[in-house]
Write a protein that binds this DNA or RNA. Structure first.
Length: 289
DNA sequence: ATTCGATGGCTAT
DNA sequence: TAGCCCTCGAATG
């Protein structure tokens, strides 16, 4: 997916382009026909992201809640044309702004189409697309750990959870109940940037390191929000390579770089191994065997 | 033409 | 831990 940075970009886009407008909602695919009908013709009043969940609040006290899952993506058209969500190519940059486009026939798989005053948005492939009450939306939010991209996030919740569990740090960083918004790339890259062995029990790691992990995720995710790309390397580790040309070989340290030379230690020590049904990438030299 | 894999996560066992 | 959902470009035949 779409890690947390993409969801916050989506929230920002809806805030800028659709909030405070009366919206038309439909489900060309049909699977969200009932939910769309509940919101169709109502005014959007707020757009917010928590971790990987996105919420669009309407003036009838109902909420559109979308989780992109692995394959979901929004396509935006009209005044601002762009696309945010699951990349279809490695390192694809989100938000290709182009000339305005006409309202086109939706793809048959379009779960929901939203039409505002000047723009439209199509959603495909999402694992969750539903209409919730305000209470139900709050329940979803309450189940998500602190989100490093939110100004109101309480990192103490993350420190507390990390201090109390012997689960591996590589596992809990992807646990949305512990910390919200981090996916497989930010997990791997964040651990690399702290020289941390992913298998270290979380409760064996000093609090200062957990604080450093949090602060670094705040830093990295904000870069993601601003650029629409997951960039985790420091300029000194991609010497002479313009950012635009850094993909896919030099934008990340370990993600999908198994068998390649480590950008920091130079050794052929980057491995990939399963961790809780996902692929974990790390440098066995830099991150302590 | 067909299969595969991917930045996720739920549920059943 | 395994199966399943959802989509589509890339990889494979």
């Amino acid at each position: 997916m779409p890690e947390g940075h993409s969801i916050h970009r989506i929230a920002r886009h809806f805030d800028e382009v659709f909030v405070n407008q009366t919206l038309q909602l439909s489900s060309p695919q049909g699977r969200f026909a009932d939910g769309a009908k509940l919101l169709d013709g109502h005014r959007a009043v707020a757009s917010e992201a928590y971790g990987k969940h996105w919420f669009l609040y309407f003036d009838n006290e109902l909420v559109l809640n979308v989780h992109l899952g692995m394959y979901g993506a929004w396509t935006f058209g009209g005044q601002q044309q762009s696309s945010i969500g699951a990349p279809r190519k490695i390192g694809e940059q989100e938000d290709h702004n182009d000339a305005a486009v006409e309202l086109t026939e939706p793809r048959p798989t379009t779960r929901v189409r939203i039409i505002g005053d000047h723009s439209w948005a199509d959603l495909v492939g999402a694992s969750v697309c539903r209409t919730l009450t305000l209470d139900e939306a709050q329940d979803v939010i309450d189940a998500i750990g602190p989100d490093p991209l939110r100004a109101d996030a309480d990192p103490e919740r993350f420190y507390d959870a990390a201090a109390k569990t012997r689960r591996r740090i590589g596992a809990i960083l992807m646990d949305q109940k512990v910390i919200g918004g981090i996916g497989n790339i930010y997990r791997a890259e964040g651990l690399f940037r702290q020289d941390l062995n992913p298998h270290t029990p979380a409760n064996a790691i000093p609090r200062e390191i957990h604080e450093a992990i949090w602060e670094d995720q705040v830093h990295l995710l904000h870069i993601g929000v601003e650029t629409g790309r997951i960039i985790t390397t420091e300029p000194e580790h991609r010497p002479g390579i313009p950012l635009a040309e850094a993909f896919p070989a030099h934008a990340n340290y370990v993600y999908q770089r198994q068998g390649q030379q480590c950008l920091v230690c130079g050794k052929d020590a980057i491995v990939v191994e399963p961790l809780e049904a996902r692929k974990l990438y790390w440098c066995t030299a830099c991150q302590g065997g």
